[in-house]
């Protein structure tokens, strides 16, 4: 593993090297690259995601943020021709080559999508516990307890308490997205991946989700893709900046604390992007 880290410190990839206590790293990416049918979509991604912090992935369209994020819970397994190279470690275990199944991984690394996608045929309650049901939990008292806790954690309990059996389609967009967060939280994941979770929401709903994320990081590590730089600077602790290279493949330009990325970046392209000079 040490060897990998050294390799990754190629000149254009500037990895934050502040000392981190062992165990505080939730996920480690080592030279991660994703290709579709042999064509590289994103590459050279090496950084550590710290536990119980918000890490944002920023960069213009086509820089591979979402592609990288989807590699972290093996969603690319569903796409024929997709290939993930390099190493992704969850608590030290290689998620692609270790003895972890994709199903187990996805219960430990949850995902919230760009468009709220509650299951339209299920009630609010059934949506929240769907992940538990998929994983064989049947005990009613346990399901009830986790449903309430997850909805409380997603700041949705008060508004849906009285209508848990109502179809999830009746909720507003912001409520639907919080339901999707609750649904992911119900499995008590270590890491929560979020792919531009507020891009389909109005400013007020966005603000409420952002507040929620700041509370949530006390118990779950959050990795969030956003193309809203204010959002990244408001809520994230660490920040990875990706950019599309000349061969149209995205690559990691810089990874550091959000503070540094926005105030004192090492790469001039990072500065240009955060100042809004392109993208």
């Amino acid at each position: 593993m040490d060897q990998n880290i050294t390799e990754a410190n190629s000149p254009e990839v500037l990895v934050a090297t502040e000392s981190r206590t062992p165990g505080s790293v939730a996920m480690s990416l080592r030279n991660v690259a994703v290709s579709f049918n042999g064509k590289t979509a994103v590459r050279d991604c090496t950084f550590d995601v710290e536990s119980k912090k918000v890490t944002s992935l920023i960069g213009p369209s086509g820089s591979g943020k979402t592609t990288l994020l989807r590699a972290l819970n093996r969603l690319h397994d569903l796409t024929p021709g997709a290939k993930v190279n390099g190493q992704i470690l969850l608590e030290g275990t290689d998620i692609y080559r270790g003895d972890m199944t994709a199903t187990e991984l996805r219960t430990r690394v949850g995902m919230v999508f760009q468009r709220p996608n509650p299951f339209p045929t299920m009630s609010i309650y059934d949506n929240v516990i769907s992940g538990l049901r998929f994983n064989g939990v049947k005990k009613k008292s346990m399901l009830d307890e986790i449903a309430e806790r997850s909805l409380r954690d997603a700041a949705l309990w008060e508004s849906v308490e009285s209508r848990l059996k109502v179809s999830a389609g009746n909720l507003s967009g912001g409520e639907q997205q919080r339901l999707c967060i609750a649904r992911a939280l119900a499995l008590d994941p270590e890491v929560l991946l979020m792919d531009e979770p507020t891009s389909a929401l109005d400013p007020i709903a966005t603000l409420r989700i952002e507040e929620l994320l700041v509370t949530l990081k006390q118990r779950v590590t959050i990795i969030i893709v956003t193309h809203n730089m204010q959002q990244a600077s408001r809520i994230s602790d660490d920040c990875a900046f990706l950019l599309m290279g000349e061969d149209r493949a995205g690559e990691l330009i810089e990874f550091s604390t959000t503070q540094k990325i926005f105030n004192d970046p090492k790469d001039s392209r990072t500065l240009d992007y955060t100042l809004g000079r392109f993208g």
Partner: peptide, 11 residues
């Protein structure tokens, strides 16, 4: 996205 959501929940 419904299919992906369910896979993401370990289905």
């Amino acid at each position: 996205d419904l299919v992906e959501a369910s896979y993401s929940l370990g289905a």
